[in-house]
Amino acid sequence: MTVSEKGELRLYVTGATLLSTRAIENIQDLIQEELQGVYAYEIVDVLERPDLADEDGIFATPTLVRRSPAPVRKLIGDLSDRELVLSSLRMGPRRQPAGGPGQREST
């Protein structure tokens, strides 16, 4: 994977709250230890850039948004659930169970 194909992460925090600080530490650790070179990331303070938060539909904070690759994923919270964060940030869509023909709606 080349640098230009890096995935894009954006972490939304609100000022210097305990949760904000923890989330920032957690994502930095993760990227350094497990996802080096896979993602480019930026940190956005909602208090300073509410417009960006509007665009990304940020509700709970902190929220880590994987903007690319698709599908867009949002990880809510201080990212202390390391396993969940890692598995959701694996590149590519998570393998969904085969959809099957789907049940027909009875009318």
């Binding site: 609100t14 509410p50 938060a53 709970a60 599908p71 809510i76 201080d78 202390s80 964060v85």
Partner: peptide, 18 residues
């Protein structure tokens, strides 16, 4: 189409700011 996961403690400060 977006996927949401809960990966730790959260607050609604982001919502409040907006």
């Amino acid at each position: 189409g977006e996927e949401i996961f809960e990966a730790g403690q959260f607050d609604f400060q982001g919502l409040l700011a907006r």
